[in-house]
Amino acid sequence: MRATRVIKLTAVYALLFAGGAITVLPFVWMALTSLQPRRAAIASPLDLLDSESWSLGNYEFILTFPELPIVRMALNSVFVTLCVVLFQLAICSLAAYAFARLRFRGRDALFILVTLTMMVPTVVMIVPLFITVERMGLLDTYAGLIFPYPYLSTAFGIFLLRQHFMSIPRSLDEAAELDGCSKLRILWHVILPSSRPALATLAAFGFIWTWTEFYWPLLATSTREMRTLEVGLSMFKESYGGTNWPIQMAAAVIVLLPALAFFLALQKYFVKGVVQSGLKG
């Protein structure tokens, strides 16, 4: 019994290590490349491992580039992303709660309509969306930058949360209802606390989608001061071009790090929801 357990554990770790290596090695490769001098001609992969050639020169070059207000752009990205995530969490959880728990005429039809909006290719939405935002006079404003974003994922969010809310035992809200709680209070005090993993997942999705979106912020903004990090940095990728791998990779690392930090901060919510303890207690 003990022996099989050891073998099993070894197998699990072996698999995890193999999968982890495949997943993460390209990023190690990326980080190593970003440390190479800007004009380096990389002849052999082994050059990357030579710690003598490492330097932070590319980062310094990008971060101190004149005409590129990188701090302002990073703040724009943070502000826009947080607004989108909060807005989305709010409207999605309200709607998902109604779809999962409340009865009203046309509910299923409305839900199907919501999922339909997920199926429209975004490429072609850009033109009508741009015209809509322009008519509202919101071009080059934070509102114009923020509001159209969640269309990428509102339907996804409602769908995700609805599926999750449906798996929460009804006995929990029935108990609250007997105590005389309003619907809103049930959502806030019973459903949402039991759904942290799903909410964290949606927040992570919303964050990544917004943080890395390129096309919409490019169209919606004109002044440099309104640009987001992803758009701002792509100027480098273009001017320092296709095969200048060190610069490309350094720019990618700069966009990646904040997103990674956000993910790590959320990570503790991803698992161990209150559902289990709720069931047991």
Partner: peptide, 16 residues
Amino acid sequence: FVGPAMLYLGVFTLLP
């Protein structure tokens, strides 16, 4: 409850 989301999707997705 579904109002805000529907309004939002209506303007930014269904209309386009």
